[in-house]
Amino acid sequence: MMIWCTIIAMALVTFSVRYIFLARSIPIRINDTTKRFLKFSAPAVLTALTIPIVFFPEGELHASPTNPFILGAIVAIGLSLTRLATIWVLIISMASFVACKWLL
């Protein structure tokens, strides 16, 4: 029951942030300063989400050159800097991750 409540509450959160400015009853518009602030939301949160996956696999710090997550992440960063399509960045970096995991 607790799980269902959590799922529904989370759904309300994700729907609200999407719908809030599309509702007619909300008269506020956000000004340019707020927009400028919110523009930093995506890079900040996505970076923060990546760090634990890459450096703390299984909850423990594993900062060594034999950590396949770090090696895979380096490949992913390198490929993202090229004009390669996202899908290839994913496929190649995942392949290098699996290869590192096997070899190391």
């Binding site: 930093f40 995506a42 890079p43 900040a44 949160v45 996505l46 970076t47 923060a48 989400l49 990546t50 996956i53 890459v54 396949p68 997550f69 895979g72 992440a73 992913a76 960063i77 993202s80 800097l81 996202t86 960045v89 994913l90 970096s93 995942m94 991750f97 699996v98 995991k101």
Partner: peptide
């Protein structure tokens, strides 16, 4: 390796944002 796919997707989404100094500082700080 599907778990790594999460990190790789986040990276592929973030890197194109990193074009100006403020974004570099934002990502580095975060």
């Amino acid at each position: 390796g599907l778990e790594f796919a999460i990190a790789a997707t986040f990276i592929a989404l973030v890197v194109p944002y990193i074009k100006t100094h403020p974004v570099v500082a934002c990502v580095f700080t975060s």
